[in-house]
């Protein structure tokens, strides 16, 4: 219990002092995870929508595959990206290993199946509801996908937030491809791992509390944005 109280005190102290190293870590954490989710969603939303409406051979297999990939182990993704970006790897010439960009790539891979698979479900449900109307209006499937994505945007914002939750919480992938280098690739989760290995358990837990707080503020902001846009447009 004492350690827990200590951790909350530590978290509070960290916030109050506004330590510049910590701010740097928080900022990088947000940049990496938001970039990864933005890039992944840009591709996964339309793909998930298309998967809901188009029928083609192997569709069912693809859906099962996508659903399974939601549980991709971060360490495996990290290793995969490491081998790709290592100097000996196929993309070694880019020199991206141990950079924030490498971390974005790894998180992108982790987030993509989550957003695509959940989008597929959301759009498929909407298609059940509005499909007939759209068809009767002569809307092409492609146009229907776009319409339903727009129509489902509230549900889809939760989908994107689920992807964000995955990105910001994972440590296995970013540790391998980022290397936890101070002032370059150290994010909240790798900093927590580092402090744990130093035996600074209260500090580690304090950072963990901050990370949860960070997640709460992002989700809170998204929620307010949603309320606001709902209110503005009735």
């Amino acid at each position: 219990m004492n350690e827990l109280a200590q951790a909350f005190k530590m978290a509070l102290a960290l916030i109050l002092t506004g330590d510049s190293d910590l701010l740097e870590i928080v900022w990088l954490t947000m940049q990496v995870s938001i970039s990864a989710v933005a890039v992944a969603s840009l591709a996964a939303l339309p793909l998930g929508g298309a998967l809901a409406l188009f029928s083609f051979p192997g569709r069912r297999t693809l859906i099962i595959l996508l659903n399974s990939l939601m549980g991709l182990p971060p360490v495996v993704v990290g290793l995969l990206v490491y081998l790709l970006l290592s100097r000996q790897g196929p993309l070694g010439e880019w020199g991206l290993l141990f950079t924030p960009t490498a971390m974005v790539i790894a998180q992108c891979i982790l987030v993509f199946p989550i957003v695509a698979a959940l989008t597929r479900q959301v759009v498929e449900d909407l298609w059940g509801e509005y499909g007939e109307q759209l068809r009767s209006l002569g809307a092409s499937r492609l146009r229907s996908v776009a319409t339903l994505l727009l129509e489902g945007r509230f549900a889809l914002s939760t989908v994107v937030l689920a992807g964000f939750g995955r990105a910001i919480a994972e440590v296995g992938a970013v540790l391998i491809v980022g290397g936890n280098i101070a002032h370059l690739t150290r994010v909240m989760t790798t900093a927590i791992a580092l402090e744990t290995s130093r035996g600074e358990l209260s500090l580690a837990l304090g950072l963990g509390i901050l990370l949860i707080g960070l997640s709460v503020s992002v989700n809170g902001a998204a929620y307010l944005l949603r309320e606001y846009s709902g209110w503005r447009h009735g």
């Binding site: 938001i34 933005a38 914002s157």
Partner: peptide, 28 residues
């Protein structure tokens, strides 16, 4: 009507974050 708010804000946010990416994000 697109309820311009949500989507536009999301795109804007992504743009800001991507643009602000550290210039030294290469391991150079």
């Amino acid at each position: 009507t697109l309820r311009a708010g949500a989507l536009r804000a999301a795109v804007l946010l992504a743009a800001i974050v991507l643009a602000a990416f550290p210039a030294h994000s290469q391991a150079g």
